[in-house]
Design a protein around this nucleic acid. Sequence first.
DNA 1: ATGCCATACGTTGTATGA
Length: 301
Amino acid sequence: MRIATWNVNSLAARLDKVRWWLDRARPDVLLLQETKLADDAAPHAAFKDCGYELVHHGQGRWNGVAIASRVGIAEVVTAFGESRAAMVDGEDGDPLHEARMIAGTCAGVRVVSVYVPNGRTLGSPFFEAKLTWLARLGRWLEEACDPSAPLVVGGDFNVAPTDDDVWDAAACHGGTHVSERERAAIASLARWGLHDAYRAQHPERGRYSWWDYRAGAFHKNLGMRIDLMLVTAPLSERVRWAEIDREARKGKPTPSDHAPVVIDVDEPGHPLDAGWTAAEGRIAKRQWLRRQRAACARPVT
DNA sequence: ATGCCATACGTTGTATGA
């Protein structure tokens, strides 16, 4: 089973790129962030054409999260299960009232797509709201989820868990994304039972999931690893492969400033589509894996 | 190592992002 997360920075602007990537990586489940769409504008038909069911939680201009699955989606929860009445369309500026969380169950795995608030600057009300939001995520996990069951919280956490996850912690946005309190919030999630699936497969430095659009940051590999796949123990021991697909950060038209983070559960690569013979399937799978490694694993290209 | 890039909304500017 392949599960991925991708902050697409507008699903409307990125729809062709997302379709290309679904065909390229064939994830079973894709967690999406920053769709920047209202629910009634969610592109269900486009995903259905690619073989995916889409569940979406958005309010329009900003934020917006979704889950695309080709193995079914059940038990959908948005906004930590708060009622619609409690949500005031984010108009009060409280991130707890914004579309930043959606969960579902796909092929026996509880999947949670999160878009953690940015925080803007240390000490600002936005920064405090970011910490409050992360604490709310922790409380929801404690109340509604089971660390001994297979679960992944994937998404844009807007936190680089360690200095190995950022090109230069000192140069980083006046301290957000790398501060002690943000990292303590991630550590608190870890204590509940969430493991960093990508880091478990890749101890090396210099692997990032976001690069600034400007000043050639991507080509200089000046980035941060802020898109995470955090998995509970029963899922962690099933992870066989993880990558950040840098290919998706390249090319025209303009890509998202984030790259997808992918994990394979139970086996590496992906079961091929029906219609292949077993022998053809094995060969194609090896070629696919080789291509993936060559394309994704280079530190800088 | 910031808003120099990119997005939406709406109209040539403002808000937001990490």
